[in-house]
Design a binder for these strands. Sequence first.
RNA 1: CGGGGCGUAGCUCAGUUUGGCUAGAGCGCUACCUUGGGGUGGUAGAGGCCGCACGUUCAAGUCGUGUCGCUCCGACCA
Length: 581
Amino acid sequence: MRMSQLYAPTLREVPAEAEIASHQLMLRAGLIHKVAGGIYSYMPVGWRSMKKIINIIREEMDKKGGQEMCMPIVQPAELWQESGRWSVYGKELMRMQDRHGRDFLLAPTHEEVITSHLKNDVRSYRQLPLLPYQIQGKFRDERRPRFGVIRSREFLMKDLYSFDRDEAGLDISYHKMHDAYTRVFSRCGLNFRPVVADSGAIGGEGSHEFMALSEVGESEIIFCHGCDYAATNEIASVAPQPTGLGEDMLPIENVETPNCTSVDDVARLLGVTNDRMVKTLCYIAIYEQEEKFVVALLRGDRQMNEIKLLNHLGCLELRFATDDEVRAHQMAPGYCGPVGLAEDVYIVADNEVPLMVNHECGAGKKDHHLLHVNYQRGDYRISETADLMLVEKGAICPVCGKTLDSARGIEVGQIFKLHTKYSAKLGARYVDENGAEHDMVMGCYGIGVGRTMAAVIEQHHDEFGIIWPITVAPYEVIVVPVNDKDAWLVEQAENLYQELLCHKVEAVIDDRQERPGVKFNDADLLGFPIRVVMGKKLRDNGLAEIKLRESGRVIEVPLAELAATVMELRAAMFAGLDPDK
RNA sequence: CGGGGCGUAGCUCAGUUUGGCUAGAGCGCUACCUUGGGGUGGUAGAGGCCGCACGUUCAAGUCGUGUCGCUCCGACCA
């Protein structure tokens, strides 16, 4: 490609709308254009990089027995009514009607369609397992699109679905995908980590997210330095650390605590630390048919993980109870406590709470708290205990007992075990060797392609621009003749360029009538892994200069060895990102 | 969805407080000259529904109402 012809609308200044480096660079390098909020075009240079990522994914999926296909993004509501998601999925699901007034949607994911195909096409265990996949656009009407292509509404995703005859088969498929994902992200040059995850609205048990480590990531991950434990903070658990262990149980005291409605205030007034308190949170759990008042108990210094609570309750939504709703259950807002609550109130406690000795808590009466409360003595009732706390840095690893650390990550992929959630609803069954019918056992496995590209840039850039790993670089080499008035120099550059093309090297020649500084800056911005500069030194000493974008290393090479050297360097870069080497 | 900020040239932004000539700058773009190893210097140009609508006024980029869009924080989310 000739730089003079390349459709790469680069920007010298940083567009005002972009906050993070990858978004700014994608805009500045002309990789993407915004069409509407959360909706982007991939421009030619950006799309070349996307195609590289797609090909890597495709190769790894095919290696594991995946079979590529393509499903529609516009789907009829009936399918989603059958699976139950038409009513469950919220406003994120883009719904619409056709000219006849029939309901359709823009697919945010494709479980329904693929499952309905398998239902029609697969009868026998002999046809399983099957691993169909596609690389398709998806649409989710995000409340708040952000960070360019990282959280967009329309996005490109690879989604593979596994269909097995039983759980053992699912385990095999799941492990295949875990391995494939590790290879995909390694080849893309990402610093990533698979972590145990919540399976969210898609449902099912067993899930890993693949996190590209980055400070601008939207997810927090909790991991252990002492062992392999790593999980999203949505699901991370810890070893319980109840306070007061070994103390004698003291009699309950009712004390006045005027105007102290927060844990901090009360603890300060009583002269205890927050971890000696139990906080009582009142929620309204919203189910499809009903609403339920829920009291949740947590050690005073912990934060509630509402995702855990929501999953535990099995409800659709969760909100704080209003002051009136709290009063309706014989409690005072700001002074709630579990002691003396009516029998019909559902009380769920974090695992730590029932083990705590002599804790303080609200008295259920305005301006009063109770001291030395003990569940084990029967001071109050708990309906159920569960893991409810939000795990933070510094907590204790549930596996090895060491201290946990935290980091932020961009979620570039996720794998789920769906089990029979969709096959049962949609009737995707097969007959085994004994003639018995079973639901197929499913898994689903997604990779955000655009997000992966953004994560690569987020991890590989400097103040001058993008530093592409060669495996996903739009072009591999740029040839820069320094002086376009020097015919001999231009000719040498052309020769090299043609020779590289002959060897299937993806090369660009900067044939623009620009100052060297302009060419160098654009080369840095666009992030070509290898830059060849031909200038004065070539004329005077017969030496061209090769500069590597990543290390900044400069090598001076005689003209005769130039092409061979470029190809060696290129091969070494590929080898460095090959998980088999 | 709640709260804040912003919509003026392709991009970054002045101008709006206190309404008043023909709406500005830098970058980019076009032509020519100059320069030729890190965004060279110069000359001449092109480029604007001042987001949209309605209203107030002799007069609106500037004031009011509405609306659309963008953005940040929060809530939420495979």
